[in-house]
Amino acid sequence: MSIGRDGIAGLVLLAISLVLLVKSFQLPSLAIVPVGPGFYPAIVLAFMAAASALLVLQDLLKRRPTAVADAPAAPPRNYRLVVIAFAIVGGYIALLPLLGFRLATVLFVGTLQAALGWPQTARQWLVLAAIALGTGLVSYVVFERYLMVLLPRGAWTGF
């Protein structure tokens, strides 16, 4: 018996639901509402805990082919790029209220483009810059002027 990916996911979810289940019983209730704020979450969490436990069980009982001679190799994945992309998005969101929407967006679009496909020639750099600027400008004008959404101003730049 060995545990697989599903089993681990099930265990994590089971742990989360049990912790929150305990928490749901500790919620204060209001005098005027006959059932407390923990009533419904407890139902959901109990359901989730049961299903997660079943998933763990199902995974443990699953017969696994024991190291078949190099099963067709999984297609290669560029997980490094995914991590980098998440980091760049995270950075953008963090900078948004500091630099203001316009600056942060131009930087973000430029950086992410470069990270996904590094420009080789001056022309490609120009295209990259133009797309970054265009996205920043167009989205700013459309949202601020036409959709009446005041986008974040930068705390550092006041812009």
Binding site: A85, F101, F108, L112, Q113, L116, S139, V149, P152
Partner: peptide, 17 residues
């Protein structure tokens, strides 16, 4: 490489709005 950043900006502005 172009589509991803532009779509993400849209999503982020939409969430903000």
């Amino acid at each position: 490489a172009v589509l991803a950043p532009v779509v993400l900006v849209l999503c982020i502005v939409g969430a903000y709005a």
